[in-house]
């Protein structure tokens, strides 16, 4: 389904066919949940964020003009809701710098990554993303997984273009670090 079919669904919802909204939920709930979880890093809270964001999107549907994709617009609501949730609680973040000290001798990152099975790589990536700063993880997923352009990420977050570039740069570095740490632990456990 492309954006034009989303717009058709939205028109139906606006015309009073509320049931049509469930199709939009079906389409975007998983990605919204993933993005919400990348920020709040807690499945239960991500679920709440996702529900709130989907409901907020419904209420604000009249303000959706179709200039951007519906998904981009929805992810912005998810982002804002997740950030609000985050602000409402104190987070315990794991400092990568602290973990860096515990790193052992440098090792061949690529080689070790290739040793892992696909399933293991999936798990390691998810764990590494959890170690990233909230906004960075959100942006990395949109950029690398959803293959969104920087302009689209700007629309989805409301951050400036240069800010996104900085966060992407930092995210890349931190993700690599996190992957290295997790991989070294994984290799150690094998030995």
């Amino acid at each position: 389904m492309d954006n034009s079919s989303d717009i058709k669904q939205i028109k139906l919802v606006k015309a009073g066919d509320v049931g049509a909204y469930s199709q939009l939920i079906d389409k975007y709930q998983h990605m919204s949940f993933t993005l919400a979880n990348s920020i709040v890093k807690n499945k239960q809270e991500a679920e709440e964020v996702c529900q709130d964001a989907i409901f907020k999107a419904y209420k604000a549907l009249d303000s959706f003009k179709g200039n951007a994709d519906f998904s981009t617009w929805l992810y912005r609501i998810v982002y804002n809701t997740a950030i609000s949730k985050l602000r409402s609680r104190k987070t315990e973040t794991v400092s990568l710098d602290e973990q860096k000290e515990s790193l052992g001798t440098p090792f061949d990152f690529n080689e070790n990554l290739n040793r892992l099975e696909q399933q293991e790589r999936k798990i390691i990536l998810k764990r590494a993303l959890k170690l990233l700063k909230e906004e960075d993880a959100f942006i990395m997923i949109l950029y690398y997984y959803q293959e969104r352009s920087i302009e689209e990420i700007v629309t989805s977050t409301g951050l400036s273009k240069s800010n996104i570039k900085i966060k992407l740069h930092r995210g890349r570095k931190q993700l690599k670090q996190a992957l290295e740490q997790l991989l070294s632990k994984e290799i150690e456990s094998f030995i």
Binding site: Q29, H30, M31, E47, Q51, Y58, F109
Partner: peptide, 24 residues
């Protein structure tokens, strides 16, 4: 490139069914 490659294995998380029912 490494990150791009590893993201090929990435899969989004399955949203719990309660999200849809509660939102609806």
């Amino acid at each position: 490139q490494i990150i791009r490659d590893i993201f090929n294995d990435f899969e989004y998380e399955q949203a719990p069914p309660s999200i849809k029912s509660s939102a609806m």
